[in-house]
């Protein structure tokens, strides 16, 4: 994962609350088996509307999204994070994030900066007054700067450290493999296992057919 210290880019005001992951990327785009190439799927349902914020030239190259509360709710699809990253977003600012989305973002190096609701409103106004305004997000100082305004943001200390170091979670966990093996040795024997497979007898399933 790339190290993240500071980022400067065009801010995009998205005045919506409860932007769920079905809006970020509709399910029909989840059929791909690759990890990249989702930029066309981002906000697919809204992109058809010429007034949608990303269809306005001043904002179309944005890389810092400023959204309403409860961003990323709903489905656990990490494709939402991939689509935002593939489009070019590096930072999402909101006053509240859904847990799974925030976790997925952290794994993928997308910064979720939690900002006070009043400051989100302030940033929206700045970005709307001056379309194309660049913002600077400093992970080191935990601040967002736009024009002459600087506001603080919150982020979990550990996630911040990992992002700044660009560390991969699996490698970090495998460093504790001895602990994992020790835990496995004391697990109760009656805990269920999927293998060998046990099930009721196999039965033929009739295929349903279209009606009429």
């Amino acid at each position: 994962m790339e190290k993240f210290t500071t980022h400067t880019g065009v801010g995009v005001p998205l005045r919506r609350s409860n932007v769920d992951t079905d809006q970020i990327i509709p399910a029909v785009y989840l059929k791909r088996v690759t990890r990249t190439g989702f930029e066309d799927a981002l906000f697919a349902a809204w992109r058809g509307d010429p007034d949608f914020i990303l269809n306005q030239p001043a904002y179309s190259l944005g890389s810092v999204l400023v959204a309403g509360p409860d961003f990323g709710t709903g489905s656990s699809r990490e494709h939402a994070v991939w689509a935002l990253k593939d489009y070019g977003f590096k930072v999402i600012i909101s006053s509240r994030f859904a847990d799974i989305f925030r976790g997925n973002s952290g794994k993928q190096g997308l910064l979720t900066a939690q900002v006070d609701p009043a400051d989100v409103e302030l940033l929206w106004k700045l970005l709307e007054e001056e379309p194309g305004l660049e913002m600077t997000v400093s992970l080191e100082h935990r601040t967002v700067t736009a024009a002459d305004i600087t506001v603080p943001f919150e982020i979990d200390d550990y996630v911040r450290w990992r992002l700044m170091e660009g560390l991969d979670d699996i490698g970090l966990s495998l460093a504790h493999e001895e602990d994992i093996t020790a835990f496995e040795a004391k697990r109760e024997a009656w805990r269920p296992k999927t293998l060998p497979a046990k099930h009721l007898p196999e039965v033929h399933i009739e295929a349903a057919r279209p009606v009429g």
Partner: peptide
């Protein structure tokens, strides 16, 4: 609980 794809890999 539900997890994302990076966590599935993890």
């Amino acid at each position: 609980f539900g997890i994302g794809t990076s966590e599935v890999e993890h």
